[in-house]
Design a protein around this nucleic acid. Structure first.
Length: 590
RNA sequence: GGGCGGCUAGUUCAGCGGACAGAACGCUUGGUUCCGGACCAAGAGGUCAUGGGUUCAAAUCCCAUGCCGCCCGCCA
């Protein structure tokens, strides 16, 4: 309803301004501040004052006078208030919102007919996922969910760097060292098992015996050249290490949950010849230069000072070169390509966008979401050095603390629903992991985060449990009324919502109504955190409603009771779907 | 040295041209005839880093400065 209401407001303003012979290109439709009795407002009068030759409040008055609300279904009235034109919504708006929100898919936008690939995480398969990079799967998965909910046909990709020096080092180390010389793994899991070889290998390369290092370097170079040449045996050797480590990482990411439709290996683009094709086309460009025996690209025209080297002096390609072929492949297969990457890849991302443009791609298809790293108070996290907090440890700790919290609260639960041990475990998982995820996804990615256990696992602050609790509360009320909270799709459709005229009811309806617009904005800007902000708002508003407006109490008339139940179902769908978009579980009890 | 990003209440964060800068945590105070108190209501707390500028209007845009982070490899 909100989107339709906004369309009506735009139409009303446009025709009013036309009638007044004024330009209609800047309506200034915005959300009014709290306390103003209007669903939308327009600030156009500010800009038109000069042209009209009258102060803004007078212009607002003329515009408001020109609008006949009777011509519109959802607009109740357009009134000037100072320099603003405020638009109140009709009963049909509120009733329509209740009706629309009875659907379990409330908030989902119509299919756009466009496909999108969201590439995220793509961490090198060198070892366990640590929380320094945990922002990538969490933000990336949320971006994918937002786009999906906004009507795109979405695939999630993990681009696997299986052709670089790191993997050659890893393969050499794995084949060279004996397990007896390694420390015990931190966990019985493939990625923890193999990372020991990788760390040992790097230690040796850094300060090992010079002869040993020389032999190692020869082997590493041989592996890299084997990959470049498309040698099957080399590919299999490296592939074993890559697939094994990746399998472990996948398991950890799956706990978030962050799952992928496809793991795209960069060797694929070497093997199918598309990297060679890219190199040929790059060499033909006017911007291509051969300097210091390597092929480079002068990107000064794109305000990038740094030359982009795309072919080494030994004739092998670089990661960035292969990534160009990868992106052209994405462009061919999807309408839009979104990449979520750390701020340290910013320059490379700019170089790639510029180069793709030089190669005659439509770079409007590409959107890059940049996030800052999560650092420890004492510094950066590193897989190679073994410094950092493993994602598995964070999630385990989160679930443990959540379990304690649930158990502490068991005694003073008012609701008598006898939680089983399985329920406690389920809630601990939902709350613990939800809290971690919500904490990260609710912040703007550009801001740096310093990891602190107590802060990351604070269930009290603006956190997932607060919002999850609202969802559980809604479900509790619906259950109490004899409905199945697992299946509320249209269960209360058709109730007469016209009796919902209390302030708390209207405010809750207004917030519920905005949900589709929140999804629209989040998808447009690729900013899932605005959905998190919304969940907080709707939770606050619901709690006020809950306090003010009893639903099932004996003294509530049947009509009002049914209407309020429908409102509870509407709020449940909005909160539940918003949490779903964030990838945070929506518990039916907790 | 150059480039990019950040800086909003004691703390963690929203807001990113328009109506008095919002929330949570913490602090002070009040609330159970209850559908779930992981809640609600009230109060105290802010030169929106600093200085200029643009604008009818700036936390929001521009310039400079400061502090913090990231980048400037024929690594990924």
């Amino acid at each position: 309803m909100y989107l339709q209401f906004r369309d009506e407001v735009a139409a009303a303003l446009t025709s009013a301004l036309d009638a007044l012979d004024l330009p209609t290109d800047d309506l200034g439709i915005e959300d009014p501040p709290e306390g103003v009795d209007a669903v939308l407002a327009a600030s156009a009068a500010f800009r038109l004052a000069g042209e009209v030759g009258a102060p803004p409040p007078q212009v607002a008055g003329r515009i408001a006078d020109e609008i006949d609300a009777a011509e519109y279904d959802l607009v109740e009235a357009a009134t000037a208030q100072g320099p603003y034109v405020n638009f109140r919504a009709s009963d049909a708006y509120y009733e329509g919102t209740v009706e629309a929100a009875q659907s379990e898919t409330f908030g989902r936008l119509d299919p756009t007919g466009e496909s999108a690939v969201v590439e995220h995480t793509s961490a090198n398969p060198t070892g366990p996922v640590h929380v320094g990079r945990a922002r990538n799967p969490i933000v990336g998965d949320a971006v994918a969910r937002v786009l999906d909910f906004a009507g795109y046909d979405v695939d999630r990709h993990y681009y696997v760097n299986d052709a670089g020096r790191q993997m050659a080092v890893f393969t050499w180390a794995y084949e060279t060292f004996d397990e007896d010389d390694l420390p015990d793994p931190e966990r019985e899991k493939a990625d923890y098992d193999l990372v020991r070889y990788y760390r040992k290998g790097n230690e040796v390369l850094e300060d090992g015996d010079p002869d040993e290092v020389e032999a190692a370097e020869e082997e590493i170079t041989a592996i890299m050249q084997g990959l470049e040449a498309g040698d099957e045996e080399t590919y299999d050797r490296v592939g074993e290490v890559v697939d094994t480590v990746l399998g472990g990482m996948r398991e950890s990411l799956g706990r978030l949950p962050a799952e992928f439709d496809e793991f795209v290996k960069e060797t694929r683009f070497i093997r199918d010849g598309s990297v060679d094709d890219v190199v040929d086309r790059l060499q033909d460009l006017d911007e291509a230069v051969y300097e210091d025996e390597a092929w480079q690209l002068d990107l000064a025209a794109y305000d990038i000072e740094k030359n982009f080297v795309f072919l080494r002096s030994d004739g092998t390609t670089l990661y960035a070169t292969r990534d160009l072929a990868h992106h052209e492949w994405k462009f061919q297969n999807y309408d839009r390509a979104v990449t979520v990457l750390g701020e340290d890849h910013k320059l490379q991302a700019d170089q790639m966008r510029a180069t793709l443009d030089l190669l005659d791609n439509d770079t409007d298809q590409l959107r890059q979401v940049i996030y800052s790293y999560v650092n420890l108070p004492e510094g950066k996290m590193s897989t190679r050095a073994g410094t950092g907090i493993d994602l598995d440890d964070l999630l385990d700790e989160a679930v443990d603390r959540a379990r304690e919290e649930v158990e502490d609260r068991l005694d003073d639960r008012i609701r008598d629903d006898d939680l089983t041990d399985d329920d406690v475990e389920r809630i601990a998982e939902q709350v613990g992991i939800g809290a971690v995820r919500y904490d990260i996804v609710s912040k703007q990615p550009a801001k740096a985060i310093t990891f602190e256990w107590d802060r990351a696992l604070d269930f009290e602050a603006q956190s997932a449990p607060y919002v999850q609790y609202v969802h559980a509360r809604c479900c509790g009320i619906l259950e109490e009324a004899g409905l199945d909270s697992a299946d509320t799709d249209g269960a209360l459709a058709g109730v007469d919502a016209s009796v919902l005229d209390a302030e708390a009811e209207r405010e809750l309806l207004e917030v519920v109504a905005r949900f589709p617009a929140v999804i629209e904005a989040a998808a447009e800007d690729l900013e899932p955190h605005v959905v998190a902000t919304y969940t907080r708002e709707i939770a606050d508003t619901f709690n006020t409603f809950y306090r003010e407006c009893p639903v099932l109490r004996d003294d509530v008339d049947d009509d009002l009771r049914d209407a309020r139940l429908a409102l509870v179902a509407a709020a449940k769908h909005a909160v539940g779907n918003a949490l779903g978009v964030l990838g945070v579980a929506a518990p039916r009890s907790m």
